[in-house]
Design a protein around this nucleic acid. Sequence first.
RNA 1: GGUCGGUUGGCCGAGUGGCUAGGCAGCGGUCUGCAAAACCGUGUACGGCGGUUCGAAUCCGCCAUCGACCUCCA
Length: 491
Amino acid sequence: MEKLTLYNTLTRQKELFEPIHKDHVGMYVCGPTVYGNAHLGHARPAITFDLLFRYLMHVGYKVRYVRNITDVGHLVNDADEGEDKVAKKARLEELEPMEIVQRYTNSYRKNMSDLNVLSPTIEPTASGHIIEQIGAVQKMLQAGFAYETNGSVYFDVERYAKQHAYGTLSGRKIEDLYSNTRELDGQQEKRSGLDFALWKNALPEHIMRWPSPWGEGFPGWHTECTAMSTKYLGTRFDIHGGGLDLLFPHHEAEIAQGVACFGHETVKYWIHNNMITINGQKMGKSLGNFIQLDELFTGTHPLLEKPYHPMAIRFFILQAHYRSPLDFSNEALQAAEKGFERLMNAMALLKDLKPADQSTIDVEKLCRDCYEALNDDLNSPILIAHLFDGVRMINSVKDGKASVTAEDLEKLQQLYAGLVTDVLGLQPVSGTADGEGDQLFGQVVDLLLTLRQEAKARKDWATSDQIRDRLTAMGFEIKDTREGAEWKLKS
RNA sequence: GGUCGGUUGGCCGAGUGGCUAGGCAGCGGUCUGCAAAACCGUGUACGGCGGUUCGAAUCCGCCAUCGACCUCCA
């Protein structure tokens, strides 16, 4: 098994990854709140933890990967009275809340599948786990770390902090928190501004509501993750992931809830991905740079010069380390797009490279370098740099300037299939002459190119150029190579 | 205001005491009827000022600047 190290936010250092149960890994990642279309911000954690998921499986672990769908709760704060985010949107569009939830869940899954993000092995919804959440709240009440006021239940942070450390994950001190607490709705029900809701009493106009021992209401923001992670992964599991913005208060609350429920922390490794900026600015609705994934794929957002293929986006995200901030711009995206194509071209060439009886390239070292990069806290940019070194080798072999033995060639092919296709999850985007696609269609294009070749042979440039130019206009890319013409569809 | 993290060449983005990151663009070349594409080769850098050190982009301090979190957010 590879020696994988991961940066644990809890200890602020890289640690050797050792699963709690041999050969098995339990991983929980905070998923989307499905009250709107998925945007650029959703792509980063999805791809980051997809990479981790894929790599863990690649090196031989059996992984249970749980990523939740938040379809209840979450108070909005732009009105004076608290309102359920999902319910609010529903009223605006005059739809049932569950219709909204269904629509945006479908849309999220479609976007993720376009990005070639694998489905988690379990994708639980908050609304489907009300009973478990009520159970968790009861546990916290019994343990004396929660109290009820007017049909709502709050977590007693002060009480908790007397016995346990609160704020260790985000590096916060409880005294500092006191001085920085803002006046919020429900404050008068709380004993302290630091306390957070475990269960909220539903106002009469509130649409999404469930019966509970405290009356009709809905679960607090942090409750679902504690209830669902421990239900499927046990009360002590390996990895909990999410965006850096969730560090406080969400993950801090989760730690406290876990300790309150089970008497010990539930998570061994906390992993956080960094955020995305657009042209150096934070992405936000008010800034007008809030880009949805659909807009990115179709190029319909005013900030975009052109559509970007999901694979180019995926490659772009993987070209930065997951703990670094990543800035989106047309220039950067187009650079990534070209680099991605270069890598895919080499992948295609690799399939039918001819072996020789000597290797002039060091495939063994390349393999080692690649795995070392991944093992070092999932350093995908370094991995990609090494893969590009390999691209140069592949092209040189193709040009006859370097050679590989049959054995090395197989190693090389396995390396690229394993790391590029399986672990990085990168796939070619357009049909090529030898690719998938419609076979007949390919044969027709080949026929046209044969005719063009014949025209060229008798120096009938008018005919040959007409065939090429018309095909180009239709969106084909024609390449004249030593072995004859090749074609592919421009993405 | 508090806490934390950045500032690397034309652009993106790794690295973290001495040893080539990589991609894109640029430039030169190969191929070619022309073109496109592809391929090969190639360079300029580490926010400012001070300090530690034989040696610092890399460690320390101060300053500037950007961002994240502190309130829903991936």
